[in-house]
Design a protein around this nucleic acid. Structure first.
Length: 493
RNA sequence: CGGGGCGUAGCGCAGUUUGGCAGCGCGCCUGCUUUGGGAGCAGGAGGUCCCGGGUUCAAAUCCCGGCGCCCCGACCA
């Protein structure tokens, strides 16, 4: 029996074309990535969903370490007075802060903010720890939760509490801070491409879109299958803004007290949302093998008469594979093989291995890819070798597919009159000239809902690179002035 | 914060218009038969009809107030 793309076996997932938002929620819940909790906007990461986050951590953390960063952990609670120090910067996110007013049954003398981010706490500590140029660079990262009281929440994409990593570094010079900022951006890009199989556009944010208080904000943008862009990770050159506010000073070789130059960079569990939306299809989740909690599932077809032989064979196979792959043997008796096929496809397991009486007799298994449904027979002795290849092939295919999709949903737009219609038609990214004026940027946003996702980095190999080359020298899409630059517009999450 | 939709068994829903025994499908439990794309039969368990008032002989249903969830928009380091 074939894969039968068109046949609907399971009706638990709303088709994307019918209701994309509902499809997204269906996949997130039915695949058992998450569940809603009794507290608004706070979701539970179920083991399967948390497993993806663990894989993402597993891909990023060694790269942080390899570039000299160490992990640390700072407190969840931040005294109100700390946040007031950065009043200007803080004012912007006051509405999103959750406060602790009581402890041990008594009202606190000073309210404590639950961190929306850790700049204030970490900078306070940096001021104590950094005295001399010899203390630099200071390269720390922390994996933690943060809370932002959002009005509208969506699983993974925007939740009240979420998990992330925040890197915070201090440097002696602006140049070194800039190098660090770009280095971490590139680590994100590389990991998104190689492990998450995403097609991404690294670039710089405009003044309007950058992190308040940062000198420059860099981003890695990815296009979702509904045509909206997602900011998948950011890296900020903070300049000396926080160093001045928190008095982070060092005595330089020349005997002068100087403020440090800082960076911060982060990715969050929002990346799981990106995985769902970039790779998923109408049958459910599709996970890239490198971040999939389960890379393969073994489904025995064990009719009564050959039950023992089949079970013995799949147990042996599972034992052979378990050391090298994240593999599960689904030998539950309460479900039929067909039920399991659908279930594991819905949950995005990259490869399924079937073994039944016919296979046993022939000394082989049937292997089926989740991404394209291709099936093949493989000799038992070859399963491990072939599985390794298949996982690589699936990984590469997903990455290629995401790349092609982004390429095909990118258009060059020359003037504002055709902006909206082109955006509707291509359902993706628009490459256009921009004079650099914030007014033009705001006007386009007000007229079309599209924002400048980024000013793409020159020379980067991206799915929009060709369009950017073609559009080079184009006049501003809003005012027609020349001499600006090429930017990427899109509607964003 | 604005617009829309919805709250009835674990999940999906019907019942609400016109008040009158709390229902259906899936799932769950037990047994038997089954197993190559969500198996069949038989038996069974499971309810604060979102919450609080009111009207009534009688409220899931009508009236008043509140809460929550989902989607869209605005906002968002």
């Amino acid at each position: 029996m074939g894969y039968m793309q068109d046949k609907v076996f399971v009706r638990e997932i709303t088709p994307r074309a019918q209701d994309y938002s509902q499809w997204y929620v269906d996949v997130a819940t039915r695949a058992e990535l998450m569940d809603y909790s009794p507290v608004k906007g706070c979701m539970v990461f179920r083991p399967y969903g948390f497993g993806i986050w663990e894989r993402i951590q597993g891909a990023l953390d060694p790269k942080f370490k390899a570039t000299g960063h160490a992990n640390a952990y700072f407190p969840l609670f931040i005294p109100e007075s700390f946040l007031k120090k950065e009043a200007e910067h803080f004012a912007g996110f006051v509405p999103e802060v959750a406060w602790v007013t009581h402890g041990g049954g008594e009202e606190l003398a000073e309210r404590l903010a639950i961190r929306p981010t850790s700049e204030a706490m970490i900078c306070h500590m940096y001021a104590r720890w950094i005295q001399s140029w010899r203390d630099l660079p200071m390269l720390l990262n922390q994996w933690c939760n943060v809370v932002r009281w959002e009005k509208a929440t969506r699983p993974f994409l925007r939740t009240t509490e979420f998990l992330w990593q925040e890197g915070h570094t201090c440097h002696a010079t602006e140049e070194e801070a800039e190098r660090e900022t770009l280095q971490m951006l590139d680590i994100y890009r590389e990991t998104f491409e190689e492990d998450l199989a995403l097609a991404v556009v690294p670039g710089r944010k405009t003044e309007a879109e950058k992190f308040a208080g940062a000198l420059r904000t860099y981003t890695v943008e990815a296009l979702m299958s509904d045509g909206k862009a997602l900011q998948a990770g950011t890296s900020h050159n903070l300049g000396q803004f926080f160093a001045r506010v928190f008095d982070i000073l060092y005595l330089d070789r020349d005997g002068q007290q100087k403020h440090v130059w800082q960076t911060s960079w982060g990715v969050s569990t929002r990346l799981i949302g990106a995985l769902i939306m970039v790779h998923g299809d109408d049958r459910g989740l599709v996970l890239p093998p490198r971040v999939a909690p389960l890379q393969a599932v073994i489904v025995p077809i064990a009719p009564q008469r050959q039950r023992q032989e089949v079970l013995e064979a799949v147990r042996q196979l599972h034992a052979d594979l378990a050391g090298r792959f994240r593999v599960k043997l689904d030998d539950r008796e309460e479900h039929s093989p067909g039920w399991k096929f659908n279930e594991w496809e819905m949950r995005g397991v990259p490869v399924r291995i079937e073994l039944g009486p016919r296979d046993l007799a022939a000394g082989r298994v049937v292997m089926v890819r989740r991404d394209d449904g291709a099936r093949e027979e493989v000799a038992l002795a070859e399963v491990a070798r072939r599985l390794a290849e298949l996982l690589d092939e699936v990984q590469a295919a997903l990455r290629r597919k995401a790349w092609t999709f982004t390429e095909q949903h990118t258009r060059i737009v020359g003037d504002s009159s055709s902006f909206r219609s082109t955006l509707e038609e291509c359902r993706g990214l628009l490459v256009a000239g921009w004079c650099g004026d914030a007014g033009c940027e705001a006007r386009v946003k007000a007229d079309t809902g599209a924002t400048i996702r980024c000013l793409p980095l020159a020379g980067a190999k991206t799915p929009v690179a060709e369009a950017c080359r073609e559009a080079a020298g184009a006049p501003c899409v809003h005012c027609g002035r020349r001499g600006g630059q090429v930017v990427v517009f899109g509607r964003a999450y």
